[in-house]
């Protein structure tokens, strides 16, 4: 289990996150919904070690404390992040991007099988193996980013707005592949603006507003909650 307790983050005088606590089980999808500036990206960055939390926070993976560890150690502990804007290595080939995903020693064993799995989930990556990643379309680059994260043999995968900039058709494909990844036993923490599609595949959801968690529950319940519908689903009642 990935567990976050009392996480606060301050940027200068600005408090970005306030006493956040959440958890993620293996094999489940939890989605974090919130408007721009709510602190979603900061939350994922802090769990990944790119941003340091205030004293008093505790982040753990299967009871191993990873608070304050550098980012490369946190990947080795089993947490992978697909960052906002994908963060792929544009000048490198698709194959090199995937190979680098398995750079950490936690991912050396079984690297070949995982590459096969990634190619099964995203067949396009097998076809385009030698292509320079920068020259691919947005949807394909997102596949590279997710594939690279999967290559690191994560127990928990975090994605920061993966559907951003994708057509409705492509984002439907994307959400489908996330459920395929969940089936392999990986826990997925998803940050999304696309509340409808993400609630449809998620098990649980957290509502984040100006740095605070203001609500949480089963994804199905939240999808039917009028207040949630008003705030995140454009007011249209989804009966």
């Amino acid at each position: 289990m990935l567990k976050v307790d009392n996480l606060s983050v301050v940027y200068g005088a600005h408090r970005a996150l306030q006493d956040i606590s959440l958890y993620l089980e293996k094999g489940e999808i939890a989605v974090i919904l919130g408007a721009n500036g709510a602190g979603k990206t900061t939350l994922l960055k802090t769990i990944s070690g790119l941003v340091q939390p205030q004293a008093g926070a505790r982040i753990s993976v299967n009871d191993q404390d990873i608070t304050g560890m550098p980012a490369h150690k946190i990947v080795e502990a089993g947490i992978a992040l697909v960052p906002e804007g994908r963060g792929i290595f544009g000048a490198l080939s698709v194959a090199e991007n995937l190979e680098l995903g398995a750079f950490g020693k936690q991912a050396h064993k079984g690297q070949k099988q995982r590459l096969k799995l990634v190619h099964e989930i995203f067949p396009k990556l097998a076809e385009r193996s030698s292509q320079i990643a920068l020259t691919m379309s947005g949807g394909e680059q997102q596949m590279v980013a997710i594939g690279r994260a999967l290559m690191s043999n994560p127990q928990f995968l975090m994605l920061d707005e993966p559907s951003l900039g994708l057509s409705p058709l492509l984002s439907a494909d994307l959400f489908k592949s996330l459920t395929a990844i969940r089936k392999t036993g990986v826990g997925i923490l998803l940050v999304e603006q696309n509340a409808k599609q993400s609630l449809a595949i998620a098990d649980r959801a957290y509502l984040l507003e100006t740095g605070n968690i203001i609500g949480q529950g089963k994804a199905a319940d939240l999808a039917n909650d009028p207040a949630v519908q008003k705030a995140y689903l454009g007011g249209a009642s989804a009966k």
């Binding site: 070690g49 790119l50 550098p70 963060g87 290595f89 090199e96 190979e99 750079f103 936690q106 690279r148």
Partner: peptide, 18 residues
């Protein structure tokens, strides 16, 4: 390859355990 990855994007490099 990891060295080239750091040249392209250091933040992403740290996210793949480099």
């Amino acid at each position: 390859t990891a060295i080239r990855a750091v040249a392209v994007n250091p933040t992403s490099a740290s996210l793949v355990a480099i």
